[in-house]
């Protein structure tokens, strides 16, 4: 038990130090990622002013007022800070292709467990550094948050963010494991990235989609990576729908956890150690 904990701590610590090596580049990168949001805010301001002028009433798009819309984009940035896993799937694919994955077959450390701790460490460091630009941007944009969640909604929001992290991790890990079967998955990864940008609600609130697309997009797990936490925060899903959504999200997390484990076991048996 003690040795498991110390292994975990060592992995965590080393990964944190690695991440902090390029902190300057990293802080700048985080701040820069807010730039595209600026254009998005102005685009929506223009769109809403036009709708207001033509309809003469408080403009809404799919139930979102202007303030909600901007708040939504900022909140998806926060969701993505939890759910996005840059380099996870491609890293697994590279290890499988080049053969370095065999260290996990020899060493008494489970691959998913190691990658999970590694990712956790990176995320923790990320939050420690990114909290500065995030607080700055959210403070400057505080006027857009008309209503903030009350009581239990906060709890639900935090839970949905944490599950977004887990879902993002196991989903991408599963895709990375496909490498055992296909070897070259970079184009598959690109398609996943595109789909997730569109369907996770990162690009726009998925409520905007007309039927039948809205139903389709809400049926697949990608919405829990960005849209769902933001929708909980803004009160777009409430009460029973919110609880149902959280349960659904938890179900997807478990499903992809099992799928990733299964893919690892089946894959490791198939694995034929390329690259010496």
């Amino acid at each position: 038990m003690a040795s498991t904990a110390s292994t975990a701590w060592t992995i965590l610590r080393i990964s944190m130090e690695e991440r902090l090596a390029y902190r300057g580049d990293f802080m700048l990168g985080t701040l820069m990622r807010f730039l595209p949001i600026v254009t998005q805010i102005f685009l929506w301001a223009a769109v809403f002013s036009e709708i207001e002028a033509t309809t003469n009433r408080g403009a809404t798009v799919a139930g979102y007022g202007y303030h909600d819309m901007v708040a939504y984009y900022l909140l998806t940035m926060l969701s993505r800070a939890f759910s996005s896993m840059p380099g996870l799937a491609s890293g697994i694919a590279r290890e499988i292709r080049s053969g370095t994955v065999k260290r996990f077959l020899i060493q008494p450390v489970d691959m998913l467990y190691f990658l999970f701790l590694y990712r956790l460490a990176h995320k923790l460091v990320y939050y420690a550094v990114a909290v500065v630009p995030f607080v700055l941007v959210f403070y400057l944009c505080r006027g857009f948050f008309v209503e903030t969640p009350q009581g239990w909604v906060w709890v639900a929001y935090v839970v949905s963010l944490l599950m977004a992290f887990l879902l993002g991790f196991f989903l991408e890990a599963t895709i990375g494991m496909l490498s055992f079967w296909f070897l070259e998955v970079s184009s598959l990864l690109f398609i996943y990235m595109l789909l997730s940008f569109f369907c996770s609600g990162h690009m726009f609130p998925i409520d905007m989609l007309p039927e039948p697309w809205a139903t389709v997009v809400k049926a697949i797990p990608l919405q829990y990576l960005a849209y769902f936490p933001a929708a909980v925060f803004l009160g777009k899903v409430q009460g029973a729908a919110m609880i149902g959504g959280l349960l659904m999200q938890a179900t997807w997390v478990v499903a992809f956890f099992l799928l990733a484990r299964w893919a690892w076991h089946r894959g490791a048996r198939r694995y034929s150690a390329f690259g010496g």
Binding site: V47, E50, A62, F198
Partner: peptide, 16 residues
């Protein structure tokens, strides 16, 4: 382009 089409589903033009 899909996103742009979606926007024009809700508004006739970008900006008054």
């Amino acid at each position: 382009l899909g996103f742009y089409l979606l926007i024009f589903h809700y508004t006739p033009s970008i900006g008054v």
